[in-house]
Design a protein around this nucleic acid. Structure first.
Length: 100
DNA sequence: AAACTGACTTCTC
DNA sequence: GGAGAAGCCAGTT
């Protein structure tokens, strides 16, 4: 399985109401520094509806990119509909961050 | 095969 | 705390 395959798999495996950072996905895919490449995969995602690329956010929780009509705002609304907490214009990644 | 690009991340000013 | 620059990875041309 190629790196991108894993990325798509992981992205599609993100639970509803949850978001993951590019770095996290890249790490799970096997390359913690490949966050950039991950973003590219999302951009060229051949599994459009299957891969919830809108659940993938930057390490800051910011919704970067998203060429879809409406822009990041639309994605924000969509995530809100899934139960994702937002802090201002960013995702509250702190809620997903598991503080031990 | 080499160079450029990009939905990133992290450090420093 | 916000803005700018450098580094890494995989893909595309």
């Amino acid at each position: 399985m190629s790196f991108r395959e894993r990325v798509y798999q992981i992205t599609a495996n993100i639970p509803k109401g949850t978001v993951a950072t590019y770095g996290q996905i890249a790490k799970l895919a096997g390359s913690p520094k490949a966050a950039r490449a991950v973003g590219m995969f999302m951009k060229t995602n051949p599994f459009a509806p299957r891969v919830p690329c809108h659940r993938v956010v930057a390490s800051d929780g910011s919704l970067t990119g998203f060429s879809a009509p409406g822009g990041v705002m639309k994605k924000k609304k969509m995530l809100l509909g899934e139960g994702v907490r937002f802090v201002g214009a960013k995702v509250d990644i702190s809620s997903f961050w598991n503080p031990s």
